[in-house]
């Protein structure tokens, strides 16, 4: 397989891998490293790419496993990163300061969710995959995904209501 062919396969979903990594690892640099690593791994196994049914789902599973491993080893080393100064780089896309503020708030809320809920929410509400695909990527049953997703959405809403009331009071 040539480099250009490989890039054609990978290009459409590399951003999705990156966003998933960032959802789990939080820091942009770490997410970039993770994505790079995943793409290199895919490149080194490029002979096998043809035999995968769904390269995108496969790559997403790799990303998930890679990031969860990272998080695990970080905990084992007691090297918990504190992202107190974390800022979403998308702020330039926003029109209003108010919106900007609530977006940062959203990022923070999402980072408090358990990893599984975070992944499900990311894959559904941001990447808009069908439940079938998410089930394949995460190796979960569709019913379990719906349960996790429902919990995640409700939790986010709760937090936003709290924040909203606080803002008024």
């Amino acid at each position: 397989m040539k480099q250009s062919e490989f890039l054609n396969i990978v290009m459409p979903f590399k951003d999705k891998l990156f966003r998933m990594s960032k959802r789990l690892l939080v820091s942009t640099e770490e997410a970039e490293d993770a994505t790079q690593e995943i793409l290199l791994k895919l490149w080194n196994n490029k002979e096998k790419i043809g035999s995968y049914k769904n390269v995108e789902a496969f790559a997403m599973t790799m990303t998930k496993n890679f990031c969860l491993d990272r998080l695990k080893s970080k905990q084992a080393n007691n090297l918990k990163l504190v992202h107190s100064n974390y800022k979403d780089e998308n702020t330039s896309l926003q029109r209003q300061v108010e919106v900007n503020d609530s977006l940062n708030w959203m990022t923070k809320i999402l980072n408090t969710l358990p990893e599984q809920q975070r992944m499900v929410l990311q894959l559904r509400d941001i990447e808009q995959y069908e439940y079938e695909e998410i089930a394949e990527m995460l190796g979960m049953k569709q019913t379990a995904i719906r349960v996790a997703l429902s919990r995640a959405r409700k939790a986010v809403r709760e937090e936003l209501i709290k924040k909203h009331n606080y803002g008024i009071g």
């Binding site: 990156f18 970039e32 290199l40 490149w43 896309l93 609530s102 977006l103 809403r157 909203h164």
Partner: peptide, 25 residues
């Protein structure tokens, strides 16, 4: 009102891009 930041965030989060080069040999 509480749903607005949620859906706005989803919309904007979709636009984030991976900009780093991958050094493929």
């Amino acid at each position: 009102e509480e749903y607005r930041p949620m859906f706005q965030y989803f919309e904007i989060a979709k636009q984030e891009r991976f900009t780093k080069e991958v050094p493929l040999k």
